[in-house]
């Protein structure tokens, strides 16, 4: 319970801090916001001073910063995120659309990484120094070293262009998930596997683990009853941290695969100085970071009750 209250307070602080920070950063950026928004709206063929002036008039830009920020904060308390300066749509609608797409992609990627990484890591950790362990070290280091942008293109080249098994890009059908999710998952799985391997090797070497086998449990039973639970604690904790990597990856992978997600939206909003969109998307990402960590806190406490006290 305590954890949840702490996380609740944390969420509030995150909201205010992110709001203030994005607001200050967007204000501090060089260049005239009216021109940037006009470029975002009308494109480089049509952006000119007349368009920028029209934008300035329409949006009432150029007022003092503090009232603008306070009114944003006030709107936020009423759960009103404002409207996008570029498209004119409510920010909440745009984010709802995009966050859903990103969440789905990230969810599939995490699941896929959990299916790929930890089982291999545990197998390797059971025999530290074995063939599988050494092989896994090489493969996971290699995968982690490949930038996601390159990974995405390699996957497209092999699976779409060469073998024509999967669509190169797009959104809407189940098969569109596979490549972007895989591009994200391979990098995550590479680290998952290492974490699981180290945890397993550490736990496997502990006296209680040998004791369990000594008292007559089979290696299989020992792993099942005493190994997995202990391995899952560092793995889960790390999953929370991986969320940061995931958000980074989503921005890149969404651009490559033409995925209408929040990372994509954030990048475009920053380019065209769409402050309400930047604030809204950053807020959503920040709050989901808090939410995911809260969920992980609760889960690890259930798995390892010692931590609650």
């Amino acid at each position: 319970m305590n954890t949840l209250i702490t996380r609740g307070i944390q969420a509030l602080m995150v909201a205010v801090l992110i709001g203030a920070a994005t607001f200050a950063m967007m204000r501090a950026l060089p260049g005239d916001a009216a021109y940037r928004i006009a470029a975002g709206r009308y494109g480089y063929d049509n952006v000119d001073t007349a368009a920028a002036d029209a934008v300035r008039d329409e949006l009432g830009l150029g007022g003092p910063a503090l009232p603008a920020f306070l009114s944003w904060l006030g709107d936020l308390l009423r759960l009103d995120f404002g409207t996008s300066l570029v498209t004119g749509n409510p920010v909440i609608e745009e984010i709802g659309h995009q966050l859903g797409a990103s969440m789905a992609l990230a969810g599939v990627a995490v699941l896929l990484s959990l299916v790929l990484g930890p089982p291999l890591g545990i197998l390797a950790g059971l025999r530290p120094g074995g063939v599988l362990d050494r092989l896994l070290l090489v493969v996971s280091t290699g995968l982690k070293a490949v930038p996601q942008f390159l990974m995405a293109l390699i996957l497209i080249l092999i699976l779409s262009v060469q073998f024509r098994l999967l669509p190169a890009a797009g959104h809407g059908e189940a098969r569109h998930f596979i490549l972007p999710a895989l591009a994200l998952a391979l990098g995550l799985a590479a680290v998952n596997a290492r974490i699981a391997r180290d945890a397993m090797a550490r736990i496997g070497a502990m006296p209680f683990y040998s004791f369990a086998q000594w008292k007559g449990l089979s290696p299989h039973q020992t792993l099942w009853r005493h190994g997995l639970r202990n391995v899952s604690v560092p793995l889960l904790t790390y999953l929370g941290l991986q969320f940061v990597t995931l958000v980074e990856g989503v921005v890149v992978v969404e651009a490559v695969f033409g995925w209408p997600g929040i990372g994509h939206a954030l990048v475009h909003a920053i380019f065209s100085r769409d402050v309400p969109m930047v604030q809204g998307t950053a807020l959503c990402l920040g709050l989901s970071f808090v939410l995911i960590n809260a969920v992980i806190d609760v889960l690890t406490q259930r798995i390892d009750p010692r931590r609650a006290t």
């Binding site: 293109l153 497209i156 779409s160 669509p167 190169a168 890009a169 797009g170 651009a255 695969f257």
Partner: peptide
């Protein structure tokens, strides 16, 4: 947005 992806989509028939 990425031209590399567009080209690969043409090449793969997507």
């Amino acid at each position: 947005s990425r031209v590399e992806t567009r080209a690969l989509m043409a090449e793969s028939g997507e």
